[in-house]
Structure formats: structure tokens, C-alpha cells
Nucleic acid binder design. Structure first.
Lengths: 214, 214
DNA sequence: CCATTAATGTGAATAATGATACAATAATCG
DNA sequence: CGATTATTGTATCATTATTCACATTAATGG
């Protein structure tokens, strides 16, 4: 299963979750396609490749589909743990974000190098000095970190996270981090989210003549 | 020039900007490749397709390269305007973000439906009630909006932005917005950034056996 | 000034992706 | 119960993106 497909499957899963909570029991490929912003053919193809079959002319049963997709995505009942490194405005906004829970994600702690931030008791999750990353990560069994530190601190932060045993990073800094193969042969997963870059792309697409969007 | 390539070119441009500010004058394809997280072959291919040529064994001259890439990306001296719709924690964090300016982006206003937010004078940019989107957009000549409203308000907000004449949207809500062809034939550009989805993907990749990342 | 090295530039091969078309099947309706 | 319609499932095709391989050029060093 390739990367694009993981994104689509995750999207399908979230959409199904919402449809189910509206009381729906069945769904057609083209419904999912519309909601996920892809073609119906690709939805059917995805399911076909995953050996998921619906009923001819009857679509797919939502609960069954969710079970299968969930098992492919490795969904469990327990919440996945993440830490947030860098408790500036963006980091703190994410700490307060209540939407993670419905997607099975829990922010277990924040970290910052500034004492006025980690000594401030008014955070929705515990905030520690960055020196404590390693022990909190181990204690809380956390594998994934969100990085919201300033650009200049990004490289150091990444190194620190690697030595603390973090295996996945969602990086919001404008420095592009790269997946690194660790000494033990495992690869660290890195996703970079660059907001200014997204905006620049949008401006480019607006200004450019050929629109081949989605 | 396709989508992926726009992303890469924009990345190259930002990296060059940083290298230049460190005093560098030349750059090799593999340097750019490393910093952008791609292969050197693709950097050379990109430049080749854009008719950008370096010196054999000498690499590329940074100022010249930036001029060319800048003109391809439509970079100008004046700042590109964006508005932020939804001034919750994430919206406000973006309003305070100082990194946009160095990428030629300026947040001209925020909007919220909650009077206690738009009546609060302590924002780094003016914040108005959502009813004023249309006139502020027109007055300030803004084409792009960042959407940071709650999930339930997303669809309405999108409609309102379209009627206000917005042409590009960066959507942070978990509802996937789709590019819509408007009555006048132009297409609205939409980019969706879904933080929970990114995390879910990371968890999937960690759990899945085959690592084919980047 | 020749041999070696380090880079660029690009055609061809390969791989990945998505679209198309249509057969297969089930439901519906007269 | 036959005709029609709606939908799935997939084989094939077309396109795009990426890597590979290597010719080309320039610099370096003995």
C-alpha cells in the first residue's frame, strides 16, 4: 500500500465515522469519492486491492467497511500518544485542540526550553523543560512528536527527539526534516507541514495559467 | 509545470534564500536535493525542464537561480494578502506568526462570528465580524483565505468566501474542501491541511511493515 | 598537457498512478 | 419474468514521474 493510498484510506475511515454517526448504514463508492475528493473508480480500485468487496448495486456496509479499514490502518481502542515540542502559540493551540480525541490521538505532554512557559501551570497538559523529553517519552510510551519550535531550534530538537527514541515526527517548522535511518536499521517517519509553503503554492496556482488541480 | 514540481521549486527558492543569507554564492544540485529532501537527479531534471542551466562542474549561481525561479513562481516585491477566517487558538496563532513576512505573505485581517473575539482590541491584525468578509476582501484586494473555523462551520464559511470573491483557500478544518468551478469558469484553488490525518498517517507508517518513505 | 575527478544535462528505461471501459451482478419496475 | 438501471470489480490503457546511465564539460593536479 503506497503513501497516497494510506491518505485516502484514512480519509475514507474518517468519513465513514461521520456518516455512521448520522445513522447511515450503507455507502456507495461515489459517496466516499465525493467526500474524499477523489474519483469513484479510485475508491473501488483501492478496495479491490485491499480485497474489500461490497454488494453489486448495494454498495458497502459501513460497520463492516470500518472494521476492515480500521484493521488495515491498525486502529485500536486505545489512544495513540503524542508529545508537542515547542509551546509557542502554535504548540499551545494544538495542546488545546479537542478534535484529536475523536481520531484516537492524545497529547500526553508539552516541552519548552523557556522556564516562564514550563513553570506556568495553566496548560491543558503537563509541560516540561526540554531536558526531560527522554524520560517522559519512555515513561509514557510515546512514539510520535509534533515539532513546533522556531526554525533555528529545529535541527537540535530533531536530534534530541531521535536520541529520546521518538520514531515519528510531524514538523511544522519551515526547515524540511528528512527521514533518517537509525543505527538499529529502523527508519524515522517524518512529515513536514509548511504553512507558508502551502500559501505560496496557492498563490502560484492562482497566478499560473494552467489549472490542473485535483 | 505540475503540482509536485511547484512544491519543489518553491522549496528550492526558500532554501536558496537561506543559503544566500549565509553568504553562499553557488550551490550544487545535490546540496539543494539534500535540503529539499529529493534526489539530485530530480533537481537537475527540474532545472532542465525549466531551461535553467548551471556551469558544468561549477554548480549554479544562487542570485541568478533565485531570479529565474522567482520569476517562474511569480514572486514580486509586494506582499501577498491573506485573511484568516476563524480566530480560535489556531487562527490567532497564525495571526501572530512572524515568519510569513519573509516569504512575502501578509495577514491583512481576521474574522470571527463571536463578538467577544472581534470586539477584543488585542489582536496583531484587525479582526471583524464574518459579515464583513466581502467588503474587507474587496477593499484590501485579497484573494486567499486561511480557514480555521470549527468543523461544523466549514461548509458555510467556504460558501461565504466564494461569494466574497476569494480564489484560494487553505483549509485547516478536518472537512475536506474541494476545488469548485465558479460560474465565470475560474477554479477556486483549495489546499487542505489536516493535522490529525497527518498524525494518523505517521502512526500507520510506524505500524506497517514496509517502509517506502520518500 | 594529459589523466582524473566532479559536476551538469538529458535520452531512455522503469515504475507508479490514474482514467477508461466494460463485464458481472443485483435490484427494480412495468 | 424480461427489460432496464445502478452499482461493483477489474483488465487495459494512457499518462506522468522518477530513476538510471552516460555523454559532456570544466576544473584540478601531477
Amino acid at each position: 500500500m503506497n503513501n497516497e493510498m494510506v491518505i485516502r484510506i484514512t480519509r475514507y475511515y474518517r468519513i465513514l465515522n461521520r456518516l455512521r454517526s448520522l445513522g447511515l448504514e450503507k455507502v456507495f463508492a461515489h459517496n466516499l469519492a465525493d467526500a474524499a475528493g477523489v474519483s469513484a473508480a479510485i475508491v473501488r480500485k483501492d478496495f479491490s486491492l485491499l480485497s474489500i468487496y461490497g454488494q453489486k448495486r448495494g454498495g458497502y456496509e459501513i460497520p463492516e467497511l470500518m472494521t476492515k479499514l480500521g484493521s488495515i490502518l491498525g486502529k485500536t481502542d486505545k489512544l495513540e500518544h503524542v508529545i508537542i515540542v515547542g509551546c509557542g502559540r502554535i504548540g499551545r493551540a494544538l495542546m488545546h485542540y479537542t478534535g484529536f480525541e475523536q481520531d484516537g490521538i492524545k497529547v500526553v505532554a508539552g516541552f519548552d526550553s523557556d522556564p516562564s512557559i514550563y513553570n506556568d501551570p495553566n496548560h491543558p497538559v503537563p509541560v516540561y523543560p526540554t531536558s526531560r523529553i527522554e524520560d517522559v517519552v519512555k515513561e509514557s510510551d510515546t512514539k510520535v512528536a509534533i515539532v513546533t519550535v522556531p526554525e533555528t531550534a529545529t535541527a537540535d530538537t530533531f536530534q534530541r527527539l531521535l536520541s529520546a527514541g521518538i520514531q515519528g515526527v510531524l514538523n511544522f517548522s519551515p526547515i524540511t526534516l528528512k527521514p533518517i535511518k537509525k543505527a538499529d536499521g529502523t527508519q524515522v517517519i517524518v512529515h513536514n507541514v509548511n504553512i507558508a509553503l502551502e500559501l505560496e503554492q496557492i498563490f502560484y496556482e492562482l497566478q499560473s495559467p494552467n489549472i490542473l488541480q485535483q
